[in-house]
Design a protein around this nucleic acid. Sequence first.
DNA 1: GCGTGGTAACTTACTCCGCAGTCATATCAA
DNA 2: TTGATATGACTGCGGAGTAAGTTACCACGC
Lengths: 218, 218
Amino acid sequence: MTSRARAKAGTKGVARADREDQIVEVATRAFGSSGFAATSVADIATQAGISKPLIYNYFGSKEGLYAVCVQHAAEALTAEIERTAASGTVGLARAVVTLDGMFRLLAPRPWIWHLVFDPTAPRDPQTQEALAGYEQRILAFGTEGVADLLRLAGNEDPTDTAAMRAVWENVFRTLVNWWLEHPEEPPEAMTERCVRLFSAVFGEIHVPDDLLAVPAER
Amino acid sequence: MTSRARAKAGTKGVARADREDQIVEVATRAFGSSGFAATSVADIATQAGISKPLIYNYFGSKEGLYAVCVQHAAEALTAEIERTAASGTVGLARAVVTLDGMFRLLAPRPWIWHLVFDPTAPRDPQTQEALAGYEQRILAFGTEGVADLLRLAGNEDPTDTAAMRAVWENVFRTLVNWWLEHPEEPPEAMTERCVRLFSAVFGEIHVPDDLLAVPAER
DNA sequence: GCGTGGTAACTTACTCCGCAGTCATATCAA
DNA sequence: TTGATATGACTGCGGAGTAAGTTACCACGC
C-alpha cells in the first residue's frame, strides 16, 4: 500500500510515518465532521484501531494533532486556489473557476472544509500558524475583485472595501456550505448553478469551458 | 426597581420571577459572549451573585436555562423584524430598513446576536422550538425578495432560489457580524455603509429617511 | 403579643462522569 | 542489548447535576 519500505529498522508494527498519516486521516475526518471540541482523542484512537498513548507519543497533544490536520487541509485548499489563480481569469469568471476547483477538491473529502472553519478550534499559535497561509491567500484573492467592483461604482472608501470583502468571503463560503449540505449535487451542476446565480445579480457572465474541466491534481 | 410587589407570600429573599429575570440576563450575556459550550453554570451563578443549585431549581438544566435565553432573544429579533416589515417597503429598501432596525436593536446588547447563532448550542427540541419562530420569520422575509430578483433575470428554478436565499441570509448575517466586530461604528453610519454597498452592486437605491430614524420600541 | 408550623428562597458540600494527559510495561526486529 | 512500536491502567481536573440542610418570612391559633 503506502508503506515506506522499512523506513526505520527494528519495528514491530507499522512504521511511524505510515501510522502518522493514518492517524491524521482519521482525525481529519473526525474533527471535520464533529468539530474540535466535540471530538475526543479516545474516539480517534478507537476509529484508527490503536490506543490513545500512541497519539500522544506522535503528536504531543490534542491541539498538536489538530494543528497537523489543519496544516494538511489548509495546504490542500491553498494549492487549489493557487492552481486556479494561475488560469489568469479575473473578476466573476475567476470566482467561478475557483469555486469549481473547490467543489472538485472537496467532493471526495468534504469534511476538510469544516475543519478549516471550525468555530470550536483552539486558538493556540500552532493552529493559527497552520491557517495563516490559507487566510492570507484567500484574502488577497477576494480583495482585488471587490475593490474593482466598488471603484467602478465610484466608491474608494477603504472601510467600505473591507466590509464588502467580508461579505464576498462569506458568499463564497455560503455557496460551498450550501453545496456540502446537498450531497446529491455533483460539482459540475453546482458550478453551473453558481454561474446562473452570479448572472442574475451581475448580468450575463461567460466562463471558458476549458478552465472548468481541468482535473484537480493529486 | 422591577419587583413584582410580593407575588407570593412567605418568602425570604428576592421573588422568584425577579430572580429568574436577573439570571436570564446574566446568562444571556455569558452565553452570547463566550458561547454555550464554553460557559459553565457555576460561572453564571457567580456572576449573578447566587449559588448553582438555585439555577437548577428554577431552570432544571443548563439546556433549560439556555432555551429560555434563546427564547427571549429570538422574540426580540422577531419583534424587530415584524416591526420593520410593517413599514411596507420592498426589495433592497426593505433590507436596509431591516438592517437598520437590527443595528439599533443590537447596539445596547450586541451579545444576543451571537446567542441566537451559537454553533455550540445544544440541539435539543427545547432550544429548537425556541428558535423556530425566528427562523421561519427571517426565512420568509428573505425568500420573496430573492425570488423576485431571480425571476427578473428569467430564472424560476426553485433550487436556485433556495441557494440564493442561503446566500442572501448570510450576506445579512455577515453585515451584522462585521458591524459587531467594529464597535466604534454607530448604527446610522453602518446603515449608510450598507446603502453604499448595495448601491455598488445593484445600482442606486433610495431609502426614505423617515423609515430609518424610527426609534426601536422598549 | 407570641409560639408554631408551613413554605419559598437559598446554600454548603458533596457525587458522578468524561476526557486530556501520563506511567510503567510488553513485544519484537536488528 | 537497544530502540522503536505499542498498550492497559492509571491520575487529575473541570463541570453538570444533587441531597440535605438552613434561614427568613408569613399565617394562623391562642
